[in-house]
Design a protein around this nucleic acid. Structure first.
Length: 856
RNA sequence: GCGGGCGUGGUGGAAUGGUAGACGCGCCGGACUCAAAAUCCGGUUCUGGCAACAGAGUGUCGGUUCAAGUCCGACCGCCCGCACCA
């Protein structure tokens, strides 16, 4: 086995500072910014990292070979809960734990041979970073983008912290998996909702994003056009004279059979004062809370308040007001009107409570029967709707809203589903929120000359909750305005804030300002961002928001952070269990086509589903083990070659082994060729057939690999390289004058083509080919195909009879149709298929196919 | 329920509407070896046939076309996202 000295080449690249770029590249340089989502420093890299960073590295190396000045940085998303858990469980300080993990992971990442500018590295827990984040926050504070308010929050009882809506998945905390509870707390918010229109519109400027990510964000932002209508109460209660409802279906107003209030609606509370049954109902709903409601399909429940509103279009008609558990307080106005015939939810509620169901829209197919158990939600023609009868539902919607506007009881509004971003976390290991609370002056931002607000080191984790709260002195500071004793904010930022602007900091990581505007303008937006689909909403939306906001604050000149986005699939592996149900690591398994056995005991194992690699199922393969056994290039080659990168890939021992074998084969073949003498002085002879076909293959490969890399089709690029190596190996068997020169040239091209994928192997074979050269493949230009070798003189044409393949013939490329037909008919299988039937039609697609249509 | 995506050999997958299964993995056979590993050569969609060849074949059914894995319609299955958003 040939050993490629990967560390040697990594050293050479580093010494040559090949991957270092300036914050301010010269004007004439073509720049390209490649970024992969930076990792959380858990201590070890996993296969997902290998895939992620290899994909990005291929792009970075490819673009560099094409003459771009490539920015390809790396850093650490270093704040977060696991560090505190380690502190609590093992008594290590979060900072120590994090620094040690970073050091270990950096070593592992560097062993992959990534073309990263390590001089730009930073961690979000560096005061140089988070202090500048505080600076940006104060900018936002001063521009009204920060808000403090008491709100019902999602409380994670395990992590003892507040979660954003986005961080609650199926009613559970995204990290702990614990059922989320409702709590009321004073929280800091970033007003992302103010940017809802811009964030929605901006999606149209992101053609190089996956369609589905844009759709997910669009749905999350959730624009809705409708109307707010004031419905007058028949009898005012306390100060309430009317109920404001929000609707997108004003056309169905004639079918209204109830109004429903959210449990938390102020009017609900007003009713509860005089009505014990309502009070009990409200208490009941609150007790269930969202936690339980979110788990499954909570039953629809409601209670009649006894209140009535006057129908705005039908004089004398009143409609009952209910309180219902399915009405959301924080969307629209917290109250709705119900038209059961044309809304499924309203229908279910009406059936439950025996409220009337009146059809007011006839479907376009003329259906006007009474509604059963399925509401009709489509468009149609109005019926049972007074003066609106006969109008289309679209016309009626506009007409009715106009009418109500004239009456002064309605206005058109646009509603958004996107809520403000709650960023307060009751944790220690995060960026302190730079605010001072003064009993007389209120919440004051920390003066900029006092930044950064550093985390204190002397904290303890032996009690639950936030250690910053318990610190004896850290929180005590003078009020920046009046000088009296005040208290620091002890909450820290959600760590998604840290990752919302790191890509901008990378442009000039040592700048005194948070963002060097000139450098950022030069490099941003990121040309190619690579990461997991799991960040489709959270991280990517926050980063977009920050970029829009920072532009408005004069910190940036771009609106969108990432012009190209690629979302890679997961790395999966088979799972194994013992008869007792214990998960077993693949390392401890002997796997054969017959089945799997525990290596230590020979016990037969159950082979489970192929699942995402995870420690809990033990189906993980440590990249370090693969690298030390086969080398980084084998790992890189495998994650690229297995399948298209956007899909989930399955890691298999066989696959990795096969990749290693192929790389070995390349090395052996190229070393053998390199050892041959170049035939000097015999240049006069004609280029033989072997050389010609080699040259054709070589140039075709350059063209097809280039094309594949442009489209992220790395598996196809690798298939083309396989084909080329097969051709090269065949050619090396032949004997022909001048062949060795051609073989050498082919190896030279090969090492440049594989360099983005397997850079160490590329350098190794190049150094064997040109031992005297001190040039590195990593700094060599991308090969360009010689167009003259892409031209073929003869082509294989498929011959079809009645669309069925009957044979293939070889003809000159420019052969006229008649010649092709003649040649085709001389082919026995074609002649037999045609028989004595006459040819009605001939379709000749030059260079590809001839289809003969014959009489039946 | 709504939105999006995907169904191709034993397997991962390839294929601007123009020779389906490139390339790899696995498997089978052979060479080398005392043997194993490594390496090399050959075969490998299914059915029939010694073969030449013929028939079938890209989830199912239908359509457009000289020609459909690819385009259109309906259905089945799987995956992902969202979901009382009024």
């Amino acid at each position: 086995m040939v050993k490629v000295d990967e560390a040697l080449w990594q050293r050479r690249w580093k010494e040559a500072r090949l991957f270092s770029v300036s914050d301010h590249p010269p004007q004439e340089a073509k720049t390209y910014y490649v970024l992969e989502m930076f990792p959380y420093p858990s201590g070890r890299i996993h296969m997902g990292h290998v895939r992620n960073y290899t994909l990005g590295d291929v792009v970075a190396r490819y673009k560099r070979a094409q003459g771009f000045t490539v920015l390809h940085p790396m850093g650490w998303d270093a704040f977060g809960l696991p560090a505190e858990n380690a502190a609590r469980d093992r008594g290590v300080h979060p900072a120590t734990w994090t620094r040690e993990n970073i050091a270990a992971m950096r070593t592992e990442l560097q062993s992959l041979g990534l073309s990263i500018d390590w001089e730009r590295e930073f961690a979000t827990c560096d005061p140089e970073y988070y202090g500048r984040q505080q600076d940006l926050f104060i900018d936002m504070f001063e521009h009204g983008l920060v808000d403090r308010r008491e709100s019902a929050v999602n409380w994670d009882p395990v992590d003892q912290t507040v979660l954003a809506n986005e961080q609650v998945i199926d009613g559970r905390g995204w990290r702990s998996g614990a059922l989320v509870e409702q709590k009321r707390l004073s929280q800091w918010f970033l007003r992302i909702s103010a940017y809802a229109p811009a964030l929605l519109a901006g999606l149209n400027n992101l053609p190089r994003w996956p369609e589905r990510v844009r759709l997910m964000q669009e749905a999350w932002i959730g624009r809705s056009e409708g109307a707010e209508i004031q419905l007058a109460l028949d009898t005012p209660i306390q100060d309430h004279r009317a109920i404001t409802i929000y609707t997108t279906r004003a056309d169905t107003l004639y079918g209204m059979s109830f109004v429903a209030l959210a449990v938390d609606h102020p009017l609900s509370a007003a009713c509860a004062i005089s009505d014990p049954a309502v009070a009990a109902f409200l208490a009941d709903c609150r007790r269930l809370g969202t936690s339980e409601a979110a788990i499954g399909s909570a039953e629809k429940r409601g209670i009649d308040t006894g209140l009535q509103i006057r129908h705005p279009l039908i004089p004398g008609r009143t409609v009952p007001v209910w309180i219902a558990n399915f009405v959301l307080m924080d969307y629209g106005s917290g109250a709705i009107f119900g038209c059961p015939a044309h809304d499924q939810r309203d229908l279910e509620f009406a059936r439950l409570t025996d409220l009337p169901v009146l059809r007011v829209v006839r479907s376009d197919t003329g259906e006007d029967a009474p509604i059963g158990s399925v509401a009709y939600t489509g468009p149609g023609t109005m019926m049972n709707s007074g003066s609106a009868d006969g109008l289309s539902s679209d016309e009626a919607r506009a007409r009715i809203v106009d009418l109500l506007i004239e009456q002064g009881i309605a206005r058109r509004v646009v509603n958004w589903r996107l809520r403000d971003w709650g960023i307060s976390r009751q944790r220690y290991w995060g960026c302190p929120i730079p605010i001072i609370h003064c009993t007389s002056c209120g919440a004051q931002p920390v003066p900029r000359h006092d930044l950064p607000v550093l985390l204190p080191d002397d904290v303890s984790f032996d009690l639950p909750g936030n250690p910053l709260d318990r610190h004896p002195t850290w929180g005590v500071v003078p009020c920046p305005r009046c000088g009296r004793t005040a208290r620091r904010e002890t909450d820290t930022f959600d760590t998604f804030v840290d990752s919302a602007w790191y890509f901008a900091r990378f442009c000039a990581p040592r700048a005194s300002q948070p963002i060097d505007r000139e450098a950022a303008t030069r490099w941003l937006p990121v040309d190619q961002y690579v990461g997991g689909i799991e960040h489709a909403i959270l991280h990517l939306l926050y980063a977009r928001f920050f970029t829009h906001a920072l532009r408005d604050l004069g910190r940036l000149d771009v609106s969108e952070p990432f012009s190209g986005l690629f979302t890679q699939g997961m790395v999966t592996h088979e799972t194994y269990r013992t008869g007792g149900g214990q998960w077993v690591y693949p390392d401890d398994v002997d796997r054969s086509p017959e089945g799997a056995r525990l290596r230590a005991t020979g016990e037969e194992l159950q082979i489970g589903r192929v699942e995402k690699m995870s420690k809990s199922k033990c189906n993980v393969i440590a990249p370090s083990a693969i690298i030390s056994r086969y080398g980084a290039d084998t790992a890189r080659w495998f994650v690229l070659s297995d399948n298209p990168p956007e899909r989930d890939m399955e890691w298999t021992e066989n696959g990795a082994h096969g990749c290693s074998r192929f790389l070995q084969r390349i090395v052996r073949l190229c070393e053998e060729i390199s050892g041959r003498k170049i035939d000097t002085g015999s240049t006069g002879h004609e280029c033989g057939p072997v050389q010609r076909s080699l040259l054709r293959a070589q140039n075709r490969t350059i063209a097809s690999v280039t094309e594949a890399l442009e489209h992220f089709a790395f598996n196809v690029a690798i298939a083309r390289i396989h084909e080329f190596v097969n051709t090269l190996a065949d050619a090396a068997q032949a004997g022909e004058p001048g062949l060795n020169t051609a073989l050498h040239a082919a190896v030279n091209v090969l090492c440049r083509l594989i360099c983005p994928m397997v850079p160490h192997v590329a350098e190794h074979i190049h150094s064997a080919l040109c031992p005297a050269s001190d040039r590195l493949v990593a700094e060599m230009p991308w090969p360009v195909a010689d167009a003259s070798w892409l031209i073929v003189d003869r082509v294989t044409v498929a011959i079809q009879v009645m669309g069925k393949l009957r044979g293939t013939i070889e003809v000159p490329v420019d052969a006229p149709a008649e010649i092709v037909l003649e040649t085709a008919l001389r082919e026995p299988t074609v002649a037999r298929a045609v028989g004595d039937r006459s040819i009605l039609k001939k379709i000749y697609v030059p260079r590809r196919v001839l289809n003969l249509v014959v009489q039946e």
